[in-house]
Amino acid sequence: MEQLTVQETQAMLIFVADNLIEAKEMLCEIDGKIGDGDHGFGIARGFNAVKETLNSNTYATVNNVFKDIGMSMLRSMGGASGVIFSSMFLGAGTLPDLAKLNTESLTSILREGLKKVKAQGKAKMGDKTMVDAYEPAVIALEQSQDSTLETALKSAVLAAEDGVRKTKEYPAKHGRAKFLYDRSIGIEDAGATTVSLIFKAMYNYLSTKNS
């Protein structure tokens, strides 16, 4: 079974941070259609802080890498997305120490994160939020327990991207876009897009590394 060391996990997540920082303008543009157009700024602010933290620390466990990412985002982002996206990573704090990152451990980290996200944001599937991409991706990981991390992430990316497409069909139920009612139909959710980019960056890192 393919596994990443703590250091490799850290390198993968620095790669994720770089990818999300690069997506800043694209995310602002999507958010601007039904939100206030600052989602990309918040995400870039968060991942810049993540990058700084990851570049200047060494970690004993995979959990600590994820936890520190969550804390960096929580301290730097603000907004609803600061609480929500940090929760995605802070779930790792509730798990026993993990020495390696593999399909099983990534699934458990992101499943815990999903619980935290749903507890904080109170969103469920179909509410046009990041949960619409995140939950299907976690389910895809759970269904890929016999696969390598790369293959499991590939199914997660497809599930997340499918979730993003589906957000177009829903009216928003949370955040500022909910006040637009049906005016939000036809536009994808920016937070869901961010989730799909996080999964995609993890996958791209592994497929490049493995090729």
Partner: peptide
Amino acid sequence: LPGSKPNFTIGEDEYEFGMGIHGEPGI
């Protein structure tokens, strides 16, 4: 937002009713 373009447009002969305070469009 500082560093950005306006994120939606309002026609010369239109107004938005019931917008919030974050530059988002109205109802």
